[in-house]
Design a binder for these strands. Structure first.
Length: 574
DNA sequence: GCCGTTTTCGGCCCGACTGTTTTCAGTCG
């Protein structure tokens, strides 16, 4: 995979160009945008080049003749002359130096020019010898900030899983609300877009007592340190290892601020360009006409409306074509949490869950589910107390008994069956035929080669005994990489064999993820959004799965567990 | 360097905060 290397080189070129005596800020911006495009690609850029040549590279947004030639050169020769030439003039490690909070290319270069600092190790030495404070433009505080920045960089684990970040953000918002100091409040940023990992938290509030709000925040127990604090904005370092930006805005600007700070950046740039074209100026305070009057700003909807656009859920604001569709009022009506009728992936204490069948059923009914599928593990999952055929028979009859006792919710009989190394299933066909449907998934031999793994899964799908392929890539966010598998072939096999693809909504998994859903959408396949619950509390994690589906633009007609139980069972029989 | 619903030339999103400065450059989102 060339993408990350090439993206890093392009962004270093941008850093180096920004040091030029001549003002080259637009060139710099072009390189940054190109770097972003490449790093965000799903497919290897070398693969794109192999298939479509340099023209295919130039098709990518923000990449034209010049940068495409550099990319081509790197793929073919392993060198990039533009990069090498600049590096001769600026032989320092911009990548690591600029990843220090508050350090950009210009400061890094100044440190190199006067103190010969080339990398983070040099910088550490200079800090400990207090050589930085005497440099023009720097001072004692700058030296301290750099020292702090290095410590934070070394401690930081990068982006945090949404499942850890969102509850923290909600906690902070709740405390702000309870403080009585704020009017409206909202989470913004990538957390609001429900991106699977977030780099920091963004929170917006309205208040007439902004100073008191800042004071309140700086004293919260979640806060480790105040990074910066002004009249309308405070950035704090949270104990959980994330930065959190909190902004105080006027009532009349709340919607504009929410739109602005929800992003993503590319989405915003496009929306603002539309505003300009229509003679407006859009910023975080409102939508302003030629006379400087704020014509929309109280809520997001009025801003999009004034721009002739249809509003879309925050999850869709990633500049993946939604801006263009929005102008045509053709935003797909994506699935909502309220559409979800049942949950088809639920464990009990018959394998590795913590609660009984009845406890899970009652908890599910309480949050409005009309049915859940009990899907405990098969025998190969020793550690998860998986059951063999005989144990399953007994287990299934207990589900029947539970059904008789229950009102207002129906239990479906299922299992999460291991797909074994050779593609066979971990339960007999006889046992499987006693169930309403099955989930099949991979839990062992994760390091198989791509071809073998693809074959393994397709073989299972072709058995005719798999209803749902569960957590298809088996990745765990920030812990385990996805298995190496040809998803296009798998999606095709799912279409051919009527296998449903799962969107496992458990926040550590989110699998399929948004991008893979986007890809799978183009096949004639259905999806199931599940929680993979192992305790009653997990049942409410459905929102993570639904938001992931929204990010993949999925409409409810593609999601089987938006159906009522009778129609669903009929679908499984087919 | 990229790009095209006024443009193949002339634009390119916009504002907050900080430290080190005497009015602003650098960084960030």
């Amino acid at each position: 995979m060339y993408n990350s290397q090439i993206a890093e080189m392009l962004s270093e070129i941008a850093d180096m160009l920004s040091l030029d005596e001549k003002d080259r800020k637009f060139e710099v911006r072009a390189y940054r945008k190109a770097a972003l495009t490449i790093s965000g690609l799903q497919e290897d850029v070398a693969e794109i080049y192999k298939k479509g040549g340099i023209d295919a590279i130039m098709e990518l947004p923000g990449i034209g003749k010049g940068i495409a030639a550099s990319v081509k050169e790197y793929i073919e020769t392993g060198r990039m002359s533009k990069f090498d030439d600049l590096k001769k003039k600026y032989p320092l490690d911009f990548k690591s130096l600029t990843s220090i909070q508050g350090m950009g290319a210009k400061k890094a270069f100044k440190l190199y020019k006067y103190l010969k600092i080339k990398d983070v190790d040099d910088l550490k030495r200079a800090v400990s010898k207090h050589r930085i404070r005497d440099l023009g433009g720097f001072g004692e505080k700058s030296e301290e900030d750099i020292s702090k920045g290095i410590a934070i960089m070394e401690a930081s684990m990068g982006r945090m899983a949404l499942g850890a970040a969102l509850p923290e953000a909600e906690d902070i918002v709740r405390k702000l609300n309870e403080s009585g100091l704020v009017g409206r409040s909202a989470i913004a940023g990538s957390t609001r877009r429900m991106k699977e990992t977030v780099g920091d938290l963004d929170i917006l509030v309205t208040s007439s007592k902004s100073e008191k709000v800042m004071d309140f925040i700086s004293k919260m127990e979640e806060v480790e340190d105040v990074v910066l604090s002004g009249p309308t904005k405070i950035t704090v370092r949270l104990r959980i290892g994330l930065n959190c930006d909190i902004r105080v805005v006027e009532q009349d600007s709340f919607g504009a601020a929410l739109q602005y700070f929800t992003g993503n950046k590319d989405h915003n740039v496009k929306v603002r360009q539309i505003a300009i074209r229509l003679g407006y100026k859009l910023n975080e305070y409102g939508l302003f006409n030629k006379n400087g009057r704020n014509v929309a700003g109280k809520d997001e909807e009025s801003i999009y409306k004034k721009l002739g656009m249809e509003i879309m859920d925050p999850e869709m604001r990633e500049d993946r074509g939604e801006v263009e569709l929005s102008l045509q009022h053709k935003i797909p009506k994506v699935v909502q949490l309220g559409d979800m009728v049942g949950d088809l992936h639920v464990h009990t204490n018959h394998s590795d869950g913590s609660a009984t069948i009845l406890e899970m059923a009652n908890a599910a009914r309480e949050i409005g589910r009309k049915y859940i599928g009990i899907s405990d593990h098969s025998k190969s999952e020793y550690v998860a107390h998986g059951m063999d055929d005989k144990q399953f028979e007994k287990h299934l009859s207990e589900i029947d008994k539970a059904n008789e006792k229950l009102e207002g919710i129906r239990l479906l009989k299922s299992a999460e069956i291991d797909i074994l190394k050779d593609g066979s299933l971990d339960l007999s066909k006889k046992t499987i035929s006693l169930m309403d449907y099955t989930l099949a998934s991979i839990h062992t031999n994760l390091n198989m080669g791509r071809e073998e793994m693809t074959k393994r899964v397709i073989l299972a799908m072709e058995s005719g005994y798999v209803s749902i392929f569960a957590h298809p890539t088996d990745r765990i966010i920030n812990v385990r990489k996805p298995i190496d598998i040809d998803l296009d072939k798998v999606f095709q096999a799912a279409e051919d064999n009527g296998v449903i693809l799962e969107i496992d909504g458990y926040p550590d998994r989110l699998d399929l993820n948004d991008e893979n859903i986007m890809r799978a959408r183009h096949y004639k396949v259905k999806f199931s959004i599940d929680t993979d619950s192992h305790s009653p509390a997990h049942l409410s994690l459905m929102r993570y799965g639904v938001s992931t589906a929204k990010r993949g633009w999925l409409t409810p007609d593609r999601v089987v567990n938006t159906l009522g139980v009778d129609r669903l069972v009929r679908l499984f029989r087919r």
